[in-house]
Amino acid sequence: MAVLDIEVDTAVVSPVRKRRRVGALFLAAVAWIVLIGLAAALAGALPIVSPTDMDILARRAPPGAEHWLGTDQLGRDEFSRLIYGARISLTVGLLAPVIGVLIGGSLGMLAGYFRGRFETLTVGGVDVLLAFPPLVFVLAVTAYLGQSVLNITLVIGVLGIPAFTRVARAVTLSLSEREFVVAARALGATHARILLRELLPNVALPLVAFFLLGVAVTIVVEGALSFLGLGVPPPAPSWGSMIAEGRENLDIAPWLAFLPALFMFLSVLAFNIVGDTLRALTDPRPGAL
């Protein structure tokens, strides 16, 4: 009797690629991000006037042939300012969470993996940072180091570290108990290898989704800081400071406040949509049956 059935199993699930359906909304979001990103990156090469040139004769001009989207109260071209403003909003919006994800993500993973005293210290440090009033922190830093794009980025970045640390630590904690990590240890893998090859691929995804959320939040925060006059110093345009300046002319030229607000809203929405969709798309499990 054929008892030793070491048959070659050919009935493996037939190779059907999961059809990844992405909606029009996702495509529109990506298109918006690409458009804004390109415009911001190539602003200097685009055939537009300088955002700081004042056309004294055409202050608060309505949209028209000369100034597509009109001018502000100093006669500066609104369209040009929006594009240069995107430059600052996106620079800060993308760079600040990078600081958070790199530092916070590493700290969180190390804390979740090694546990012990390091974890206690990290969690304690994070709590201290969270307890610190963020506005005071911003004021202190800008007062001491000066208002510049770099400093704003650093400040928002550092403020984002606790959130990333927490996400990374929580995910790592639950993964470290999983058998595949124990299996790697049993194979004699080094800690570095376990962290990089077993844990990182699994932690990265929630972190990336969180990163995109961070981008959206940072754009808003940068806008708020500029609105309060704590952001990038004038005359450099930023969406936040444009809204603040436009506010003074709401009755005469409402578009001066609405346009930057609309740009900010669309960009934040786009980053959120992309973040959510990416998370759903990269989940290795098929939809629950």
Partner: peptide
Amino acid sequence: TPLPAIAGRPPDPTR
């Protein structure tokens, strides 16, 4: 004693 195992797996229910 080797067990008389059933070789293979049930067919793909979508086919």
